[in-house]
Structure formats: C-alpha cells, structure tokens
Amino acid sequence: MATPNTPLWEVFIRSRNGLAHKHVGSLHASDATMALQAARDIYTRRGEGLSIWVVPSTAITASDPAEKGMMFEPAETKIYRHPTFYEVPDEVGHM
C-alpha cells in the first residue's frame, strides 16, 4: 500500500542578527505543533535562529515565473526612483 501523504510546510527562520524571517526550506508534518518541532530539529541544529514560522505550503500564492516580464517590467523603466538619478553638485557634499 502506498504511504499516505503528510502535509507540506514552509519554514522561515529569523537569525540572531535581527533580520527578517527568511525562507530556509520545507518539511512534512501532520499539524502545526509537529511542524514547529520538526523545523527546530531540521533547520536549527547549530543555533541558526531565534524564531521560527511554519506556514502550510498550500497557503502560499506565488507569482508565475512565465509572467515575470509583465510583473516586474514597470519597475525597471522607472530609474527616477533611485537616488543616483538626481544631480547634486559636489560642493554640497554628501547627501
């Protein structure tokens, strides 16, 4: 008999340096409590983090890589959103 599937969870960890939670991988667990415990064992064996989030993989909606052109093109043409677009004379100093 085929083994029944256990739900998939995505794991996010906040490292000690105060950065945001970062995706580190995924794991299988039947519920949230077990997912947290498994995430502790699988992804933080060497003090990698101070906080863990587990999220059911099915709860994530992702952008379609085939449409990345359309999705991100608007930002690429707007160079005036960057500080280096603007000219400030050297005499003014660092700004």
Partner: peptide, 19 residues
C-alpha cells in the same frame, strides 16, 4: 537532516516524498 533537505528538493520536481 540531509536526507530531509534532499527529499524536499526532490519533491519540487513533482514527486511526493512518500512516493
């Protein structure tokens, strides 16, 4: 742990860990 990271990577190709 290494086995589990790798199963997770393999699963992204469309076959479940159980299979």
């Amino acid at each position: 742990g290494h086995g589990l990271y790798l199963y997770a990577a393999a699963e992204t190709l469309g076959t479940s860990r159980e299979e």
